[in-house]
Design a protein around this nucleic acid. Sequence first.
DNA 1: GACCATTGGTTCATCTTTCAACTTTCTTAG
DNA 2: CTAAGAAAGTTGAAAGATGAACCAATGGTC
Lengths: 158, 158
Amino acid sequence: MDTENGTRWLSDEEQRAWRAHLEVSRLLMHQLERDLQPFGLTNNDYEILVNLSESEDHRMRMSDLATATLQSKSRLSHQITRMETAGLVRRENCESDRRGLFAVLTDQGWETMREVAPHHVASVREHFIDLLSPEDLKALYAALAPVAKRLRTTRGRA
Amino acid sequence: MDTENGTRWLSDEEQRAWRAHLEVSRLLMHQLERDLQPFGLTNNDYEILVNLSESEDHRMRMSDLATATLQSKSRLSHQITRMETAGLVRRENCESDRRGLFAVLTDQGWETMREVAPHHVASVREHFIDLLSPEDLKALYAALAPVAKRLRTTRGRA
DNA sequence: GACCATTGGTTCATCTTTCAACTTTCTTAG
DNA sequence: CTAAGAAAGTTGAAAGATGAACCAATGGTC
């Protein structure tokens, strides 16, 4: 116990690591968002496109997509509606489960992806990856992977 | 060049470090938000409270607060309005610059802070800090500090 | 094979964020 | 001194996010 009420406050080392993580994650998201802006995409849009691009037949069930992108069903539904009107994606019925829907990449969506991906990767490199040494990368992954794992399982309640 | 069009795609090592960072930052924010919810605060609220608590006289100029919390003036203005109606904060005029305003912590705001902070720290420990070894912490900071620095200066255009 | 809890998705109301327009005060150059 | 421009904040409308309520379709189970 560090203080009279038993709270274990953060040490300086802990504090600065924590604040660095916080600051980087926010600034980085903003920067990536800015770099996507010229292409008329948001980070959310892009993430959906990535998921669909990497999937069998360029399609995913709504629920799976929601899980993969860590969004609520509701939010994803709105998001897909927007992307649908933008022509990047379309909804398609599911034969085997008639409640279900697929989100499917359109040709235009795929074309957009092919055009934008290189710029996005460049942006990730410029603002993050290329600023880290190979050791940094290893250390980062080693440190964060367990955190991610725990958060993933904790999710929904702890 | 890795491919015909000259894009330097991410290696597996790079990819997984990048995705780990991404995943942690999102899950973590959600978790912290959930843990603040019982106290009726959002992450944004809490961050404002922290900034004001740590400031001289528990007050900050709106612009400085906006900069410190990486928010737009507009967003901060709305945010403070909400916190003002919640009784956590009040606006006060600035003598020396009559365009300016201070956001000032109310007694209730300070009391809230004293009550909530221990829980928040516990949450940060449980979901992040305590999952990292001292070496992890050092490595994390060493890796991220330069990234943060660059993003901070890059901000607004690159 | 009828019932009921689950699952998959959408919708509506509400709250938050964003963006551009606007007011007031300050600063500075001439 | 004064006019032009910058800086500090606010405001309002439009877009996005959240959460609860809702409607089907499914999958047991008795």
